[in-house]
Amino acid sequence: MDTLLATLVSGLVLGSLYALMASGLSLVWTTLGVFNFAHGALMMVGAFIAWTVSEAVGAGPVAGVVAGTLGAGLIGIVIERLVIRPFYASRNMLLVTAMTTLAVTIILERGAQMIWGPRLKQLPPLVDGEIRLFGNAISAHEALLLVAAPVILIALWRFTVSSKIGRSLRAVGQNQDSAALIGVDVPKAFALAFAISAALAGLTGALLGSIRFITPAMGSEPLTKAMIVVIFGGLGSLGSTAGAAYLIGFIEAFLVLWVGLYWTPFALFLLMILVLLLRPNGIFGKR
């Protein structure tokens, strides 16, 4: 019973992480029709900026998280301007931007290696101590992640459904010309969606930076998992993406319990291929 509950909690932590990552991917996809390969690298940059502000500058972990979020958001705006916007009119926009954002990943990862060096870094937790959840002790910081993820996701959802600006992002994603004809500045909407998504990645990285080590390659594993999430859940809606994220988190945690760390990647891989063969549109996906 204890192991079961521990597995549930660990699945919840993983699910929160994947949900934060995948929702950013989903926002950019639904607004711009671009898949941002640099999303994992943006998360990594957020973690490094948070570390610099918190540890190197000494401003403390809260300032670090804020700086990591804003810094990644700003870099997101630059990325959108330099490697996405020039290709809007391109016939192969989807493929071309996949390639340019992949190139940006290399630039960010190697750039981080040059700036911050190879030494492993870690952030102190935002909150100290432990919390008991279903009789399992987890660090208060992980508990914070558990609470923060749904709060952020619901805020993002409310933003796109209820606010004028959020609605305009959805409108642009569904029909650029019609959105322009009611006065929405389409390029500005694109930049905003990209910035929000990047800031979300930066925030995730800054939060993850006190659970895992901060390295230039730290973004690639969460990105891969977020990709599996969107394969399962589709990219179309925030709700199904978040649902799939928690599902994958639980599946991964239970696989670790049943088949061990050694075989988990293999089992996850097999599962993905099987699901795709049986249901090419994913579990929740309607496309």
Binding site: W29, F37, P265, L268, F269, L277, R287
Partner: peptide
Amino acid sequence: PVARLKGIYVVLVTFAVNQLVMQLVLS
């Protein structure tokens, strides 16, 4: 799976297969 998919899902699945094979090799 790729044979039946379209657009971005082909990118995602092929890339994910690559990453998962890497994690398989690592594990």
